[in-house]
Amino acid sequence: MDLAVVSTAGRAPLESYELHHLLDEPLYVAVPVGHPLAGHEGPVPPGRFADADRISGGPRPEGTHLDAAVRQGFSPRVAHVVGEWTAKQGYVAAGLGITLVPALAAASVRPDLALLGVLDEGAPARAAYAATLRGRSLTPAASAFLDAVREATAKIPA
């Protein structure tokens, strides 16, 4: 593999790779449409969900998109570890907890979920990169692909 598109919340172990920054994007909190905050206007501080059960891709919040909560001084409670994106949405719709949704995925969220902006005064919540092995020259095809990915991501509104 010459190149992979990856995302990180800032602490992922990516030292072996050269990272080519593509974009930064905000995160949303997904809640069921019946949630008391579902109609809330404006971003919500992570502490507002300090007692909520979380549906996450891993059991620990550190080094993930849950870092915003850690920066706010609390460790979110991961109640369900679910790797599949559509399954996370089902858990939220069933009222089993909340999950984070990156802005690029917001348009694909189920209609029985509401998205709330996250007020995070820290670093960008999610950064996307093209990752290549450090010290390895790109093939012409990989270089052309990286150029195409950069061009495509440059067209995405901030």
Rank of each mutant, 00 (worst) to 15 (best):
L96E: 11
L115P: 00
S108A: 15
A79E: 07
Y91R: 09
L113T: 04
A93C: 06
G117P: 03
A69C: 15
A127E: 14
G97Q: 08
I98Y: 00
L119W: 05
G117V: 03
G95E: 13
L100V: 11
L100P: 01
P76V: 01
G95C: 12
V118W: 00
S75V: 14
A114D: 10
L104E: 12
A103R: 04
A125S: 13
T99G: 06
A114I: 10
A106Q: 01
G83H: 10
F74M: 01
W85C: 10
P102Y: 10
R110S: 15
E84D: 15
G83W: 04
S108T: 14
G73N: 06
R77Y: 09
V81L: 03
L113S: 08
G122D: 09
Q89R: 02
G122K: 07
V92G: 02
G122T: 11
G122I: 09
R110I: 11
A79I: 08
D112Q: 11
V82H: 00
V81M: 04
L115M: 01
A125E: 12
P111D: 12
V92N: 03
V109N: 05
I98Q: 01
V118T: 00
Q89N: 04
L100G: 07
F74G: 00
T86P: 02
L113W: 02
A107S: 15
Q72M: 09
D112R: 11
V118A: 00
L104Q: 14
S75P: 02
T99A: 14
G73R: 06
L96Q: 13
L96N: 06
R110F: 09
T99L: 06
D112P: 08
K88E: 07
L100N: 04
T99H: 06
R77Q: 12
P111R: 05
Q89Y: 02
A103Q: 05
V78G: 00
V70I: 09
W85R: 15
S108E: 15
L119H: 05
D120S: 10
E84W: 10
R126Y: 01
A94F: 09
A125I: 03
R110E: 13
A106W: 01
V101R: 03
A94E: 15
L100W: 04
T86A: 12
G117N: 07
G95N: 12
Q89T: 01
A79C: 08
Q72S: 15
V82E: 04
G83D: 13
T99I: 03
K88T: 03
A105D: 15
A87R: 14
W85M: 13
A123C: 05
P102A: 15
Y91S: 05
G97N: 10
A69Y: 06
A105I: 08
L96G: 04
L100R: 02
P124S: 11
V82T: 05
S108N: 13
A94M: 10
A105W: 09
A69K: 01
A106N: 00
A107P: 09
G90N: 10
P102I: 15
F74H: 02
I98L: 09
G95S: 13
G90A: 14
A123P: 07
V70F: 03
K88F: 02
Y91I: 05
R71Q: 06
G73F: 04
T86H: 10
A79D: 08
V101P: 02
L100E: 10
A123R: 12
V118N: 00
P76A: 02
S75G: 06
A93K: 04
L100S: 04
